[in-house]
Design a protein around this nucleic acid. Structure first.
Lengths: 243, 243
DNA sequence: AGGTTTCGTTACGGAGGTAAAACGCCCCAT
DNA sequence: ATGGGGCGTTTTACCTCCGTAACGAAACCT
């Protein structure tokens, strides 16, 4: 239990000092297991905790007053989740586990201690939230005007690129753990239409499916259809304060 | 020219020390005036600068390969813009001035110096980008499934709430500085439909218009229609490292 | 004044939503 | 193992909301 998956993730982008790595690993000392379907945070309820997601899958969403659900983001191991609760008294979104997961909870005041002792970590958190901001603007552009096909294509590509960021062993297939209705709630379509698009993409030889796993057969074509470009690479973090 | 509008903005939420205020004011020493319509950053081109927007209006957008434009956000005096360029080598979005504006540019390495000397500023920047992240998720929810009416209503409310955040003298009317086509590109509609919605809302007594200014007559009804709640208040920043 | 931009309005067509039902599949209880 | 039961998927028919294209009116520079 030595490693910190959060530290591992950050080290994809920059070098950490031993002290920083140790401080980040300390965030993952407490571990809480949750089962698939468990509510981790409920929108509009007070929260004080945030989490490193150590294993599993979690999604965030909001329910609009008309009852429709908008899935905001799917998180994977190594992601830093619930971070809006650092800023807001009440959680702006709900968090639910898509599969059995391991969370490492810590409260805002541990965060304070961490930031006081390791100023550079604050800059890292700024970088992470900028990356997430840009990812969200890409989703925004996708929801604004793109066709159903484009929405589904870019959604799938975004998922696989983020999985690859965490786990080098990912090739071109993954287990989504989302129903077609949930995909619809993520990209702003009904399950009926998501189904049409997926089956069409399958017929066109762009993807294939087998027992829950989706395989992307022609990513270049999907990128074309989805107006997608991977933004998770090509970072410039040289300006970060020296270790 | 003593004040710093960026510092003023931050002080709406928390107390700064004199040293911090001075350091932030230093970011605004260089000022560059740009005219309406001027391109400040172009998507996919290398950038090294970011800006405090001291006066005027700026919008960010992307152009999708099919030619459609998605306006991501409109910025006002006191906003911190182009901040994605701290993380990415190439700007993920374009920035253009909606009115004659005053920008205070500084490069990533000044930012580094600032963060090294004032660790708490890094935490502040984290907070700002979390706030923006949440605002974007609200827009995302609005674009996902909401009707044209809802999109326009929540867009107008978001604008006025952000104006109020900066300027207490704003009451219930503002000069949008956007054409109906631009509103459409922000909320994912055509100008034809934006026009239908605006005229309908005017007929319903929810808004009124006079020489470019829009007045929100019934904000409660607009909030209902747009599924909108103001997220710019009710922050919890007590956990921030002590000054 | 003259041209350009923005606003306003129309008719039509299409992409995607709605509703409903059948089908497959996994899981669990008997 | 086996037979439901429930969830997810697939399919159909119909309909609505919004986009497209086009044009005239108004507003706005210069």
């Amino acid at each position: 239990m030595s490693g910190s998956c959060f530290a591992d993730r950050l080290e994809k982008h920059l070098n950490l000092t031993d002290r920083e790595r140790a401080a980040l690993a300390r965030l993952e000392e407490n571990q809480r297991k949750v089962k698939r379907g468990a509510m981790i945070q409920r929108a509009n309820e007070p929260v004080t905790e945030l989490y490193v997601l150590r294993a599993g899958r979690v999604m965030s969403y909001v329910i609009l007053p008309d009852g429709s659900r908008q899935i905001l983001r799917v998180y994977f191991a190594g992601d830093f989740i619930g971070s809006a609760s650092t800023v807001y008294r009440k959680s702006p979104e709900s968090l639910v586990a898509l599969s059995d997961s391991v969370l490492c909870p810590f409260d805002k005041h541990s965060l304070r201690t961490l930031l006081e002792e390791h100023p550079r970590v604050a800059a890292l958190m700024f970088v992470l939230s900028q990356m997430e901001r840009v990812a969200l603007t890409d989703r925004l552009a996708s929801l604004g005007r793109s066709s159903a096909r484009a929405r589904v294509a870019s959604f799938l590509l975004d998922i696989i690129d983020r999985l690859r960021l965490m786990d080098d062993s990912i090739t071109n297939s993954f287990d989504l753990k989302l129903t077609q209705e949930e995909i619809g709630d993520a990209v702003g379509l009904t399950s009926v239409h998501v189904n049409r698009m997926i089956r069409q993409m399958e017929a066109d030889g762009l993807i294939s499916r087998a027992n829950g796993r989706i395989t992307l057969l022609d990513e270049a074509a999907l990128e074309e259809i989805g107006h997608y470009t991977n933004r998770y690479t090509d970072l410039d973090l040289d300006w970060l304060p020296a270790a």
